[in-house]
Computed example of a mutant assay.
Amino acid sequence: MTTILVTGGTGNLGRLVTERLRADGHEVRVLSRHAQPYAVDLRTGGSGLDAAVAGVDTIVHCASAYRGDERAATNLLAAARRAGVGHLVHISIVGVDQVPFGYYKSKLAVEKLVEESGLGWTVLRATQFHDLLFMLFKTLAKPHVMVLPAGLRDQPIDVSQVADRLVELATAAPAGRVADMGGPEVRTFDSLARAYLKATGRRRLVMGLRLPGRTFRAFRAGGHLAPERAVEKGTFEEYLAGRLGEGRQG
């Protein structure tokens, strides 16, 4: 039986990866800042991290934050080398090498750390999850006028499909940089926002605002999209129907 450590194992993605791996019969350890017995802040590391990786065959690195990702990865990789871990699977984002957004730059730096770690490694890039757009639109819909960045498109994907793919990769040999994953549709931001408004019963005036700068030019150019790697199912409307049908608030 394979022992697998999932970092960020209590998050939306990590939780699903953990459930699937356990259902397949693997011994899974969950590492996060508050998950006992492996409550570890990767940004500081320490003896708790060494205990978490001891005897582990594979690490699935799902933990991420807007600050400290590079330090966290450095600590995790060092501990993995000390423990003789054979394979590290890392989830990244489509466009980290195309869009000069601060968070994307950090994710790209983590990819390079993984590639140069000396470990067996696999990196998967995916487009944005439906959940992120849902929370963004929830915030933008609070005023009576919903202001969106003009000219943007997105290709949201269901987190469960990414979890399925990570499980496949974690239970296989190291594969390096694998093919990207994108949602089934490339959509305008406007159409996605209106789908959210319709599903939640909100009535808002939707306006586009053209934002300046290199980052938004890159987003408008589609640097974060992967239309040639689209999955076959899981539209934003289907996600909304499932989420709101479960009685959660929009």
Score class of each variant (00 low, 15 high):
1 M>G: 14
4 I>N: 08
5 L>I: 04
6 V>Q: 06
6 V>P: 03
8 G>L: 01
11 G>K: 03
13 L>V: 11
13 L>K: 06
20 R>E: 07
22 R>Y: 04
23 A>K: 07
23 A>G: 04
25 G>T: 01
27 E>G: 11
30 V>H: 00
30 V>Q: 03
32 S>I: 00
33 R>H: 00
35 A>K: 11
38 Y>A: 09
41 D>Y: 03
42 L>Y: 06
44 T>Y: 13
47 S>T: 14
49 L>A: 11
51 A>C: 05
53 V>N: 07
54 A>F: 08
54 A>Y: 02
57 D>S: 04
57 D>Y: 11
59 I>H: 03
59 I>Y: 07
59 I>W: 06
62 C>A: 15
62 C>S: 13
65 A>T: 10
65 A>M: 13
68 G>T: 12
71 R>P: 05
75 N>S: 09
76 L>K: 06
78 A>H: 11
79 A>L: 09
79 A>E: 08
82 R>G: 09
85 V>R: 10
86 G>S: 13
90 H>F: 13
93 I>Y: 15
94 V>D: 09
97 D>H: 10
100 P>E: 00
101 F>P: 03
107 K>R: 09
108 L>M: 11
113 L>H: 02
118 G>S: 05
120 G>I: 01
120 G>S: 06
121 W>D: 06
124 L>I: 04
124 L>Y: 00
130 H>R: 05
132 L>W: 15
132 L>C: 12
136 L>H: 13
136 L>M: 15
140 L>C: 07
141 A>N: 08
141 A>M: 03
144 H>V: 14
148 L>G: 09
149 P>F: 07
150 A>W: 12
151 G>C: 01
152 L>H: 04
153 R>N: 13
154 D>N: 15
154 D>E: 15
154 D>K: 15
157 I>V: 13
157 I>C: 00
159 V>R: 01
162 V>F: 01
163 A>I: 00
164 D>V: 08
171 T>K: 02
173 A>D: 12
180 D>G: 05
182 G>T: 05
187 R>K: 13
189 F>E: 06
190 D>P: 08
193 A>M: 00
201 G>K: 07
202 R>A: 04
203 R>Q: 14
203 R>T: 12
205 L>I: 15
209 L>I: 13
209 L>Q: 14
210 R>W: 15
211 L>I: 10
212 P>A: 05
213 G>L: 07
216 F>K: 10
217 R>V: 14
218 A>D: 05
220 R>N: 10
227 P>G: 04
228 E>V: 08
229 R>T: 12
230 A>S: 12
231 V>Q: 05
232 E>T: 14
234 G>H: 09
237 E>K: 10
237 E>T: 12
237 E>H: 05
238 E>H: 05
239 Y>N: 02
240 L>P: 01
240 L>S: 09
243 R>M: 06
245 G>L: 00
246 E>P: 00
247 G>M: 04
247 G>R: 07
